[in-house]
Design a binder for these strands. Structure first.
Lengths: 191, 191, 191, 191
DNA sequence: AGATAAGCGAGACGGTACGTCTTGTCTTCTT
DNA sequence: AAGAAGACAAGACGTACCGTCTCGCTTATCT
């Protein structure tokens, strides 16, 4: 734990991430430049390049570090209700101005696997885990049959959300989500 | 109404689109530049800008014009089989090197609505229409109940495909597609 | 002389050379940057780099193109007078603010042989030639003996000038120059 | 009053000067950086900046401290021979790889008066003093007339050397130096 | 001995310029 | 007109040094 040399400045790091976040939220990922982030943060470009390899990495970091804590896992006693609440929260966020960032990160992830890895592990995995927990709780409670392919179940519930967000751009309302959830549970024979 | 002056050169347009396609296929969307396309096509940059507003437009055009004709609509007599065949063809293509282009166009579409509009109307709509036809044929045949929300049905069948392609990057095999299709049809009460 | 493509803009070139000259005259060679020249000239950096390889080349060009015509070759009938007049003019210029530029170019020339070549051929050679002409005229006139090593003569007359300018920094007055010229002519047995 | 605190490390100073000298000898003044010297010497940049104001100061110091002792003052009994020997030694050194450093320092001196002052007082003055001594000895010996302007004499002997080194780049041989020396002595009426 | 003070290596940092690259527009000549 | 050639302004790229700044450690002198 040598710790030689001047230690990294926390305030600088924060300034960079805050600036990145602000700028991307205001102008979109494409329009933001490292140079712009540096200027906005009152920081040297070299300092940014020292700690992050490229714009996507800074923005990803800024996004994930700034993220508010997750919503609490809903627990109404009904699997369908719980799932609808959770996914509804998620989709509200993803459709928001703030959420535009992650849509743009997903876009970036198509050609930068580091970014893809980042949103997978830092964003989606934890959220999928919550859905899984809800499902497992339903099985324990006897509300749902056991022996289901829960992975597939989660996947099919999340998929239409992203399909609308990324491909068709259609709006997402609770009725749609409710339809999706009940269709998947019925279709997999859970109910 | 021919118009005065020298007419637009067809060979030039072809050269541009071919070059765009080749270069994107070889190096990826991000790495390709208008300048590169112009050089590769032996064409002036200004000529490209005259007919397309930006790189994405050229690449989109090159992609859709180069596209081979669609597979014939499958007709085995079974809705599930037909759907699985169709989606399987689609997913095979999307997962291929060639298909990487459309994944990158989807990425680009997150911040360029013209591109989004383009792949919607020129690529996905026709394919969704095929699926819809298959479903309608099933209803006519009495294989499926009538009165279903076919839009939702198509959406839920396509969604997991793109979810894997764009978000998780997981591979797609026929078993997965078969699961998805039967789950959706069952879930919506079609069978 | 094909002349394809947009021709090089004369006004741009002039703006660059003028800016380079102004800035170097005002702030010195070291303090001037390509970026600064570009900004001052209202020109893109790339345009400068397109036509000159580096700062020294631009400055050298700007210096030599801006140079007023030479003083007329003096012709008083006396070799000594003529030489003193010519060298005096030269040294007055070299010691001036304007002349600081060429002193700095000579400095640059120590590590950039292109620059060295430039001031040799574009500045000093023509001036040495004038001195040589004066000497030759003296020989023709019978004022000086023939058979002298004129090269050496010119060299020894110019040398003390640069010695003071570059090494000792001492001022140069007419008396000094007169001493030098008469010493050299006497020393080489010209008189 | 030795002073409190850890004393300046001699080995560090030596390492810095040695590195500066080596690097400048190998790559030239322009290509050398403080950062490079620090790295090569295994020393902190801040330590260099603590004791020297800039690169030129370090290099000047390194050059003058590393300098071998001067050649002994020649004493053949002939002023011309002594002068030729001395100047020949000097010019051989200045034309060498090692001597390139001082040429580059002279260049630097055009825009940094501290450097100019340094080579004046630490390098050229002592050498001019030697020439002066030779001349005075000649006067004492009766080999030369007295009442001469010795300053001018020394100046005119040194000048052609530097003129060739710095301006024309021409080589310097003994014959040339002999010509110069005898011309000057004759020209000033010393002989 | 303990306190005090400076020297020093390591390395972060803001700043500035580098030289390159691409964009989108323009000007000229050719077809 | 259409188009190739290519100049151009604009501005970001990622790199390199500059000179300054913490750090923590070392090495002395002075209580």
């Amino acid at each position: 734990m040598a710790g030689k040399g001047r230690p990294r400045s926390e305030s600088t790091e924060k300034a960079i991430l805050n600036s990145a976040h602000t700028l991307v939220a205001d102008h979109g990922f494409q329009a933001v430049t490292i140079e712009g982030i540096a200027k906005h943060a009152g920081v040297s470009k070299a300092t940014i390049y020292k700690w992050w390899p490229n714009k996507a990495a800074v923005v990803a970091d800024s996004f994930f570090k700034t993220l508010k804590e997750q919503y609490p896992v809903p627990d109404t006693g009904s699997v369908i209700e719980d799932l609808v609440i959770q996914i509804s929260n998620l989709s509200t966020f993803l459709a928001s101005d703030e959420g535009r960032i992650i849509r743009e990160l997903i876009a970036e992830g198509q050609s930068d696997s580091d970014v893809a890895e980042a949103y997978q592990s830092r964003y989606f995995s934890p959220r999928r885990e919550v859905s899984r927990t809800i499902l497992e709780r339903g099985v324990e409670r006897g509300e749902m049959k056991s022996g289901l392919n829960l992975e597939l179940c989660v996947e099919m519930i999340y998929a239409p959300l992203f399909y609308r967000l990324l491909i068709t751009g259609e709006g997402i309302d609770e009725a749609f989500l409710r339809n999706v959830v009940s269709c998947v549970l019925k279709g997999l024979g859970a109910l």
